[in-house]
Simulated assay, not measured.
Amino acid sequence: MCDWIPSLKRAALALVIVATGLMPALARADDRTFRLSVPDALIETGLMKHLLPRFSLKTGVRIELVPEATEAEITLSSGKGRPVFSDSKTTWHLRLHAQDHAGAARFADWLNSEVGQRTLTSFEVDGTAHYTLPDAVEEIDGAVQFEGNAVRGRALSVRHCGRCHVVSEDNRMNAIGSTPSFFVLRAMSDWDVRFQSFYALNPHPAFTQIAEVTKPFPIHQPPPIIPVEITLDDLEAILAYVSDVAPADLGAPLVHQ
């Protein structure tokens, strides 16, 4: 009469085992997104649109902006926390509330890294740098390093970028003369920021897709040429290659917009 009870127990045990097995995967998924609480005054400057896509492009971690005083893994405010950047009126502080959240911790570390600081200080409003680093307004020096495979990055650069840019001595005669070479781009002080965010700089958005980062092309606006389709790992490899490219000797300091 109660033969179904052992079967029910076995089914329940199986569900527990399955759920337990899924927990690490769910935890990993949670580590790929977190909430960032930011005041409206900071959002209105446009800094978040400049900053967050570049971090997500680099790491694959997505950030959800939430209003001030909302529960979040990280808070940017003028109150308590670690000072990370300043404008003419305010020093902005970061508080990491979720110390065990890998994605949030990575963002906090990135903001304090050389690449993160370059990204912050390269943000401009009306052509003028808007933010400086607390107690350190001078330009950041030192070589930027990337973890990708530079050999693979060279091959990817030739395949995807070489249609327009001179990316090495081998394709010098096959590129479009009006586009800057990798050697010239490498000579710019913010070359690393430019390459990390190239997908957002014209004309690239019209034909570039980065997996899990960019939105699909609108149906009514197909790419005008064969699209460039790469992954974050591909981009990391390209960045590693470009970091090894010798900057062009342009004589006087390069002035650019």
Rank of each mutant, 00 (worst) to 15 (best):
D40Y: 00
F55Q: 02
C164W: 07
M188P: 09
T91H: 01
A206E: 15
G79R: 00
V16L: 15
L51S: 03
I17D: 07
R152F: 07
S88N: 13
P203G: 13
F217N: 09
R154C: 04
H220G: 01
V151L: 14
N202L: 12
T208P: 01
T59M: 00
S86Q: 13
P223V: 06
N202P: 12
R106V: 08
F217P: 08
H204V: 11
E139C: 06
N149F: 05
N171C: 04
S56P: 02
R95M: 14
H256S: 15
T214L: 12
D31Q: 08
V38G: 06
F123Y: 13
F123W: 06
H93D: 13
L22I: 05
I210T: 00
K80N: 07
L51V: 00
V166K: 11
C164N: 03
V245D: 04
P223G: 10
V144F: 02
K9D: 03
E71K: 11
P24T: 00
S88A: 15
Q117D: 09
F217I: 08
P222A: 00
S197Y: 02
L235M: 13
K49I: 01
D233N: 13
P24S: 07
L239V: 03
L201C: 08
A155R: 13
P222L: 00
S86I: 08
C161H: 06
R152D: 12
V18F: 15
C161N: 01
P227E: 13
Q221L: 14
P6N: 03
K9P: 02
G177M: 12
F55R: 00
E236M: 10
E236W: 06
E147K: 14
C164T: 09
Q221D: 15
S78G: 14
L120K: 04
S157W: 03
T132N: 02
I140G: 03
E114P: 01
V158D: 05
P24K: 02
L250N: 11
P224S: 01
Y131I: 02
D233K: 12
G21H: 07
I238V: 15
M48H: 07
S78V: 08
T208I: 13
A246M: 04
M188W: 10
A41I: 09
L96V: 08
P6Q: 05
P247W: 01
V66E: 13
S157T: 11
R106L: 10
K9G: 00
S197V: 02
G162C: 07
A41K: 11
A19P: 00
T45Q: 08
H93W: 03
S197L: 08
P253V: 00
A12I: 13
L15D: 06
T121P: 03
R194G: 11
R95I: 03
P218T: 07
S113T: 06
L235T: 02
D233I: 08
H93M: 10
T33W: 09
Q145F: 04
G153F: 05
R54V: 06
V166A: 15
M1A: 13
H256R: 14
R82E: 15
H256A: 04
F182A: 11
L57C: 12
T128R: 07
G177C: 06
T128V: 11
E147A: 14
A246D: 12
D135M: 04
A41S: 15
Q117W: 01
P205E: 01
L57K: 03
D192N: 09
K80C: 06
H165N: 09
T132H: 04
D126H: 11
